[in-house]
Amino acid sequence: MVTLIRFVARSFWSTIAAVLVAAIIAIAIVVSAFGLRISGGTALYFIIWWTLLFAILPFGVRSQAEAGEVTRGTEPGAPAAPALREKALWTTLVAAIVLVFTAWVLPLAGL
């Protein structure tokens, strides 16, 4: 799974496509299986995605000082390689799972 994420994250457009496809599939599942409206499913997915993004951002980050490659004029604590595309993909996958679980556990029909 990690290898697949890294492969897809090589290109900006493949990352965007993967994020959109996974989001659409997750929203379609909660709309068809749990009775949410498209707007409610989309809004709930966006809130979950955005919250999880900030939870996932710190994972695997090495500062420039730790990597030994401090760029002149930057903060030494800044990330050396933030891997934002990979984190967007991980956030999308986790958010899809959390969305389906949330719709399954909570009575959100008609939202």
Rank of each mutant, 00 (worst) to 15 (best):
R10C: 07
A67G: 06
L44F: 03
M1K: 09
F7A: 14
T74H: 10
E66P: 00
L111I: 10
A23S: 15
P82W: 12
L57V: 13
G60D: 01
I47M: 14
V8H: 03
I16P: 00
F59D: 00
T42D: 00
I24L: 15
Q64W: 07
T51D: 01
K87A: 08
T51V: 15
L111A: 07
E66K: 11
I27G: 03
I27W: 03
I29Y: 07
V30F: 08
A103C: 14
F34N: 05
V100M: 06
F34M: 05
L99G: 04
V8T: 05
R10V: 10
A23T: 08
P79V: 06
I47T: 12
P79Q: 08
A88D: 06
A23W: 02
V100F: 08
T91K: 01
L20T: 08
I5A: 03
L106P: 01
T15A: 01
G35F: 05
A33W: 13
T74Y: 09
R62V: 08
V8E: 00
I56M: 10
L53D: 04
T42M: 10
I16W: 11
A22P: 00
V31Q: 07
T15E: 02
P82M: 12
V2W: 14
V94F: 05
R37Q: 10
E69N: 13
I25A: 13
I27H: 03
T51Y: 06
